[in-house]
Each structure stands twice: as structure tokens, then as C-alpha cells.
Computed example of a mutant assay.
Amino acid sequence: MRVLVDVNHPAHAHFFKNIITSLRERGDDVVVTSRDKDCTLELLDSFGEKHLMLSKAQTGLFGLLKELIFRDWRLYKVVRRYRPDVMIAIGGTFITHTGVLSGTPSIVFYDTENASLQNRITYPFATKIYVPRCYQGWLPKGKGDRYPGYHELSYLQRPYFEPNLDIALACGLKRDVPNVLIRMVSWQANHDIGEKGWNTDLLDALLEELKDNNVIITSEAPLPSRYEKYRYRGHFQDIHHLLAFCRLYVGESATMASEAAVLGVPSVYCAETGRGYTDEQETRYKLVNNVRSLNKNELLSAVRDVLGVPEKEFRARAEEMLSGMVDMPKFVISKIEEVVSSNSKK
């Protein structure tokens, strides 16, 4: 098979890494297209992955619309040149439009319900859409299927990932105190339009609460200078080794909250909008505590609640959760095969 993989975000680079490797080991041809957003290109480079950069991420509704038109056209030219049997992506806006224009099947994997505008201009044009069973958003009839799992399994599930303590220590982990990772986001993605994030008062209150812990902050946006001592200083591709040995994750990133859950690390996800997967990880597995407001008292209360539970309890909960999940890379490849086979019979 010839497979085009469109990578638009750092999390997508992680998601597709093992899938791309498995496809190539089978003898399939893979071409990767990329988008210059945050550390996406650096991650792909660190994986040794050759890729065609088609656009630089824009911000705001007008900027995103301009990028959409420009990138759709550039991707169409790549498809005309490489003639893939199928295109795959997370979110999938670019591949679905190009798929209609070129007659190439497109497969979308997604888990973000509140990206309502993106989904409205994407889902109707997709060949197939695969979402976690906990997905709470709209799916077009006859195109969507659900599975037991999360995107983060693709790169953090055994045997695809094994935490390395030496790497974690090099990234700032300390042996003698509990470690807490805080994640700040930039709120500039298409699914963030109209939303806002943490302010410094909220972060200051959290840091005071966690003063007896080793706190490390990773942020998409530059941090004010007074937080410099907390800044994550490891390589961007190594952060999951650090996360795996933390006592707690707190942050604005739903993706990292889910990553923590998969690794057996409890998390407090604090944002005004939620996700189906973090809801399931809270109600079904009690690995995530969702705080739906930017109120510091609610956030601090959630942090205290989590730290009051023995660490080993969260590891046991994670094992229970993972026992019922799909092997994500194998699942994705099976769906690629199904779509390509179905299209070849037409």
C-alpha cells in the first residue's frame, strides 16, 4: 500500500510514529506531510522521519482559513505526485478536502468534540472516521465507528513505550521529593477559538500549594521570567519519561491528562471545556479529576483530593483500564487495510 500520513501537531507525530514504523516494516510505502506548529517538525526530525512541510500554523479564524486554502492546494499537488492509496490524519480537515478533489480515500482519527467548526467542514468529506467509544460529539451516519481506547495508547502503551528513569532524571526529575508536572497551552488551535486559559494568579496559587514538591512547568507559550526556575529543560521528545515518574500532573492540556492516565499517573485537568476521554477516565477509572472552571479554590481542592490517594492505587487503576483497550497501532493499520480493500473493489 501507499499511505500518506498528514501530521499537523506534536501529539500527531507521537500518535503516528509506531504506525509508520509498522507499515514500513510490512513493506508499505509511506509519505509524511507536516505542519510547522510548536515542536512538530523537531519531533519528526528527532524520530528520523523525512517529511514535506506544507504550511506554518496560523492563528485566529482568518489566519486559519487562509492556511486551509493554501495547505489544501499544496497537499493536492503532493497527492497528484505520489498517488497514495489512502490518506490518514488526526482531525483530518486537509486530507478530507484533498481526498474529494483527488478521489483518494481519507481516514480521520479524532477525539475532540468541541472542535465543532473543524468537524463540520471535515467529517462530511471523510471516507471513514474513527473515534473513542467515549466520544460525545456528532458523527455523520454511516461513516463513524467507535473503539475502546485513546489516541495516547499509540505511543505510551506497552510494548511501544518503557519509561526510563535516567532520562527522567536528566529532564529534571528529583529522587528525594514528589514530582509534579504542570502543562500550559497557547489556546491558538482551531478547537480553542473563543476559549481562554489560566492566568498568573491561578498558577501562583497552584505553585504555593505545591511548594513542598519538585514542580516542572512545560508551556506552549513563553513563560514570564519569574517562572524560569520551573521551566522544563529536557528534550521535547523525552517528556513522557518524566511524566511517567511524576506523582501528579496538573494542566490545561487534555492530551497530557490522558497521557498521564495511560501511564498510571493521576491528573487534574483544569479548563472550561472538557473531553469525552477525560470524562471517561474520571467516571470509569478515577484517574483524572476534571475541573470545569478556572477557579483557584476548585483547582486546589482537586489537587488535594488526588494527593490524598496512595500512588499505588492509580497504578492499579491504570492496569485495569489498559486491560480492556485495543492495541492502537494494530487497530489503525487494520482500518487502513479495510478502507483500501473496499476502495479497490469499486
Rank of each mutant, 00 (worst) to 15 (best):
V3C: 05
P10M: 09
A11K: 14
I19C: 03
T21N: 13
S22Y: 03
R24M: 13
R24P: 10
R24C: 12
R26W: 04
K37T: 01
D38Y: 15
C39D: 12
L41P: 05
L41V: 15
E42W: 09
E42N: 06
L44A: 06
L44I: 03
L52Q: 12
G60C: 01
G63D: 09
L65S: 09
D72W: 08
Y76T: 08
K77V: 02
K77E: 10
A89H: 01
H97V: 06
T98M: 06
S106I: 04
S116D: 11
L117K: 03
Q118E: 14
I121T: 08
T122H: 01
Y123P: 01
A126N: 05
P132W: 07
R133D: 12
C134P: 07
G137Q: 08
P140Y: 06
G144N: 04
R146Q: 05
R146C: 06
L153E: 08
L156M: 05
Y160D: 11
F161P: 02
P163A: 03
D166H: 07
L169K: 11
L173D: 05
D176F: 00
V177G: 11
R183L: 02
S186A: 15
S186R: 15
D192W: 14
D192C: 12
D192M: 13
E195M: 14
W198R: 04
T200A: 05
D201F: 11
D204L: 09
D204Q: 02
D204V: 12
D212Q: 10
N213H: 15
A221E: 13
P222H: 07
L223A: 07
P224K: 00
Y230K: 01
R231P: 00
F236T: 10
Q237G: 10
H240T: 09
H241W: 03
L242S: 00
C246F: 03
R247W: 04
Y249L: 14
Y249D: 06
Y249N: 03
Y249E: 09
S253Q: 06
S258Q: 14
E259M: 02
E259F: 02
V262F: 01
L263P: 02
L263R: 00
E272G: 11
G274V: 04
G276H: 04
Y277W: 10
E282A: 12
R284A: 12
K286S: 15
V288Q: 03
N289A: 15
V291Y: 00
R292G: 14
S293F: 05
A302P: 00
V303F: 04
V306Y: 03
G308N: 08
V309M: 03
P310K: 11
K312G: 08
K312Y: 15
K312C: 09
R315F: 12
R315E: 15
R315V: 14
E319P: 04
E319W: 11
S323R: 13
K330T: 14
I333W: 14
K335T: 01
E338C: 08
E338R: 14
S341W: 07
S341M: 01
S344Y: 05
K346Q: 12
